[in-house]
């Protein structure tokens, strides 16, 4: 551990650049997935445990399309549309039936969905690890000391653009306004003539589409396998819980924050502690919040 710290700050400080870049690239994907989760959680109060499996499904769709010679970047709109439809379908089949029940029913239902999706992808594609070669160049700086693959830059740009589109959509469009109204008070929204069932369906479908986009990006920068969804679910939950619902800028910030924390933890303690960093971050935030809450309660008393 000391060696690693020395390496970072004394011997080769230049590698900080690489680690920060990696953290940002990773964080962008986390932020995207968490954003979708925050949306569904905030608007519908459904904790979607199948979040990560939507991501992996997006990656496999890209994989299928790439077999037909379609470049992953161009398959993005197709995956987006398919996943949107899939999300809508899942809403009609499952989510609509559990949305009015208590939290545990929706947890169980989405957990079941996650298992079914994993096994289905396993049957369809087999358990092998897959990658997609985006055939994009790699840029290097400082005499190969820092390398930046074009694929990661593109994925960062795409994630950013997509997030921006959603933010604008939520602010400006009728549907976006309806979603926000429903999130604030579903009953009042219904009274004012908003078809909340449709809003829920749209929100869930939008989340699936966001995950699909994340899946396309995952497929060109990492590797995937039918059972890899859980790590995206776990991180999304940690990020959304830490950032708080309904606070979308905070979710995005926490996404990038987690990316950086993970990379530094992994640098200093070892790669196996990467996912532990996510959970520890969540723990610290929750404890800190609890302390904070206690204090303010005392003031009230």
């Amino acid at each position: 551990m000391l060696d690693n710290l020395q390496l970072l700050f004394v011997w080769a400080p230049i590698i900080n650049v690489q680690i920060i870049l990696e953290g940002i690239f990773v964080g962008a994907i986390f932020a995207l997935v968490s954003y979708g989760l925050a949306l569904v959680w905030g608007v519908m109060n459904v904790k979607n445990l199948a979040q990560g499996d939507f991501v992996i499904m997006g990656a496999y769709l890209t994989f299928t399309l790439s077999k037909y010679g379609l470049h992953p970047i161009f398959s993005l709109p197709i995956v987006l549309v398919i996943m949107f439809g899939y999300g809508w379908l899942i809403y009609l089949l499952i989510i609509r039936r559990v949305i009015d029940n208590d939290m545990f029913v929706s947890l169980l239902a989405t957990f079941g969905l996650s298992l079914v999706m994993q096994q289905f992808m396993n049957v369809l594609y087999g358990p092998e690890v897959q990658i997609i070669d985006s055939k994009l160049p790699v840029y290097s700086m400082f005499d190969d000391f820092v390398t930046v693959p074009m694929a990661k830059i593109i994925s960062l740009i795409l994630a950013g653009t997509f997030a921006l589109i959603i933010v604008i959509f939520m602010k400006k469009s009728r549907m976006g306004q309806a979603i926000r109204a429903t999130a604030q008070d579903a009953r009042a929204a219904r009274v004012l003539g908003i078809n909340t069932d449709r809003v829920y369906a749209f929100t869930y479908a939008l989340n699936a589409a966001i995950c699909g986009v994340a899946g396309v990006l995952v497929s060109i920068i990492w590797i995937f396998q039918p059972f890899y969804g859980i790590q995206y679910s776990l991180r999304a939950f940690a990020i959304v819980t830490a950032a708080g619902l309904g606070n979308l800028p905070a979710v995005i910030g926490a996404g990038f924050g987690l990316g950086l924390i993970e990379k530094y933890t992994s640098m200093i303690l070892g790669t196996e502690y990467e996912i532990a960093a996510a959970v520890i971050m969540l723990l610290i935030v929750l404890i800190w919040r609890q302390i904070h809450l206690r204090r303010s309660r005392q003031v009230v008393r």
Partner: peptide
């Protein structure tokens, strides 16, 4: 559930 070992390789590059 490994999909990213960039930090290990970053160390490799430095050392």
């Amino acid at each position: 559930d490994l999909s990213d070992m960039s930090t290990t390789l970053t160390k490799t590059k430095a050392l």
